[in-house]
Design a protein around this nucleic acid. Structure first.
Lengths: 233, 233
DNA sequence: ACAAAAGTGTTCCATTTACACCCATGA
DNA sequence: TCATGGGTGTAAATGGAACACTTTTGT
């Protein structure tokens, strides 16, 4: 404390990404297989170190999103989860990771093309249950990310980030059902969502059709906080 | 990326504390006057650098809580707010700050004795409105901390952390009113709080008295998440 | 015509709100 | 006995859950 020659320790800062999306109505997270030690061959979150000491942390998150997941970060939802800094979390030394939560829309493309070895969408259920082993403290980070997403569906317009630019109300319902892991009544959901001013706005008279009566299309509205909220059952 | 000799940049990591408490039924935050440049003489959050490269971040927060605010960290609520890492946030160079939110009970003691120059409880209203100037990005951090507290009052037992070991229901109500900045009906609040199983439990038949009918005393219950929640009006 | 999904109306029930009222104590 | 805050009862308003029912399309 009173040591004049003392100077604060410098540490390495990494960024890790919890990228969630919906595939066949199930919640998935993007994982990569580690190509180097430690945890070589084990699944891990995409991420990496800051590029230089002038790079903003969220800019590094955007960059990794592009490099490792081939996703245009400027378009999708990205928010900070927090800092993970247990001294022993990385055997290479003191590394503090700032984790981010990203939500990717369900794109028609088959898989995310990436330069990282073996990047793949994995069902979140397998990760949370512990059936999929993760490197470092990444399972804890995924758990926190999923809980954040679950919580934010209630009070924010986050659900729309899982959808394409335009979407039907039942597509939106599938987001809530997949993330929360519950079944919702389509009729009540329909009105509840419509009853939140500014959450979703009608997109033209356009309609899309698969089977049954075509649904109206909507796009994300101006409101980011939901009044009233869509509450979990 | 493909540069073999590249190594990640090391940065300095600091911890900043948003310590909230209630004084005369108003929400206050602990600020210190900076004794050195940059921002000498300006109000700032208590905080400091990691002690060494083995110190856990939350341990550093506990230590600063003790050093700068003379508060026993083991007893009060402490949770991470997030990492603040804009490259230009500190003119001395690249410093990433991990911010924590702490809730201190309203102690009978006059002021928190501290070794930092001019530590004092300041009304949060003055800080949020911009009337009190803060160093670095600390105003943003306080804003985030207060919003976190407001939000967590709804779904968690955080409010009890503002109170002494035992408290009356109307004291608990004052917490909600001060943090949310609203008036609540005492009669409905009384029942609503009692209707959440495990939130508060009766403490003996003991009672305290000032004016009017003495109130029953309660202590914090085992439940940390509130079912049903206490919702903001 | 039928299946399937979209969208509407309505009933029932739990929760919330507003407020009248009673209780226990100090001065 | 009066003022003051603690605590209870209750009726009206609100909002959510459940579900019957109508609409619009493809086959």
């Amino acid at each position: 404390m009173s040591d004049e020659s003392w100077s604060p320790p410098a540490v390495l800062v990494a960024v890790d990404l919890v990228i969630l999306t919906l595939r066949s109505s199930k919640l998935h997270v993007l994982l990569v297989e580690r190509g180097i030690e430690p945890y070589r061959g084990i699944q891990a979150l995409p991420g990496g170190f800051l590029n230089n000491d002038q790079e903003d942390i969220i800019a590094a998150a955007h960059r990794e999103l592009d490099e490792e997941a081939n996703l245009d970060g400027s378009k999708l939802h990205l928010e900070q989860l927090g800092a993970y800094g247990q001294p022993d979390r990385d055997p290479r030394g003191r590394i503090i990771s700032v984790a981010y939560l990203a939500i990717a829309p369900h794109l028609p493309e088959p898989v995310a093309g990436t330069d990282a070895a073996g990047a793949a969408w994995r069902p979140v259920a397998g990760v949370l249950s512990g059936r999929v082993k993760l490197a470092f403290d990444h399972r804890k980070i995924v758990t926190d990310g999923v809980e954040r997403a679950r919580s934010k569906l209630e009070h924010s317009a986050l659900a729309a980030a899982f959808c394409a630019e335009t979407f039907t109300i039942s597509e939106l319902q599938q987001v809530y059902e997949a993330v929360w892991g519950v079944r919702l009544d389509p009729r009540n959901f329909y009105r509840k969502v419509q009853g939140v001013p500014g959450f979703i706005v009608p997109a033209d008279v356009t309609r899309r059709t698969t089977k049954g009566r075509p649904a109206r299309l909507f796009r994300s509205g101006p409101q980011t906080v939901l009044h009233p909220p869509i509450v979990r059952p």
